[in-house]
Nucleic acid binder design. Structure first.
Lengths: 137, 137
DNA sequence: CTCAATAATAAGAACGGTTTCTATTTAGGA
DNA sequence: TCCTAAATAGAAACCGTTCTTATTATTGAG
């Protein structure tokens, strides 16, 4: 692996990610930071997100509505994903035990490096919207 | 929802999906079926996969190495995904209980429609390849 | 069986998120 | 300060997926 130098942009990306609970996409980060760094490039955001997740400093949540989402919280926890608005929320008390996962890996001969545990459905707001739409038809 | 008519292509897609354990991508299905249906269109595969998953006849596994993967097995079960070769395998005895999921939904006010539970890592083959590559450097 | 309505399709263009390319700037050790 | 290579901006390329349009296939009604 190549040497990693510090950079202002990467520091800012990581600081922003650690200050929000919204599980951002690359573009969301780009929109937020280009006020402070007007010449920021979207490619820079992607390159740094990829680098940070290779170093396990951040985590990939998965592709939601066509965009990869990231999470600066790296300890094991599950997510709820709203299929209508794309919101991602933490389910902190819902992580599979590391022990169970590793013993599954051993059983099948896999090297388990991580996991995604996402519940899918409708959040409270969207549940209400859907109900209104249906009663209108 | 619009009326659904039967079609030869959709029947063939579903038959193929039910005959394999490989959790195919749209393109894999397209490559397989275009021998028998030379004028099959990739758009047709996508349209039918989307329709079948809206009807809950098949399931989305998630985006793996840039491609959405699908599963004709719809009862709850987990997957192992190899980060190197992209293989997806079923972990049949590793499904979160429906009861636990629904009670979580109730607790937060979500309507839970489904879930993804994917372990990630290296499969047996790729584990060996990585070991060889490292010992070569 | 024939016909009409419309769902499904083929072919290819368009779309959009992500990666890659190249010249330039920046970080950081000597 | 100077040198080397990592990091960046800007833009082009990439590629999986969706959309468009003219045509074909399905299915119910008469």
């Amino acid at each position: 692996m190549a040497i990693v130098r510090r950079s202002q942009k990467r520091d800012a990306i990581l600081r922003l990610m650690r200050s929000t609970k919204c599980h951002p996409s690359a573009d969301w980060i780009y929109q937020q930071l280009k006020e402070q760094y007007p010449n920021l490039s979207l490619g820079t955001v992607y390159r740094n997100l990829n680098q940070l997740s290779e170093q396990h400093i951040i985590r990939r949540v998965g592709v939601i509505q066509g965009q990869e989402r990231f999470d600066a919280v790296t300890y094991p926890h599950a997510h709820f994903v709203c299929n209508r608005c794309g919101t991602v929320m933490d389910l902190p008390d819902c992580a599979p035990s590391e022990q169970a996962i590793q013993s599954l890996g051993k059983q099948y001969g896999f090297m388990v490096e991580g996991h995604e545990f996402n519940l899918r459905g409708l959040c409270q707001d969207c549940k209400h919207h859907i109900t209104l739409e249906e009663s209108a038809s």
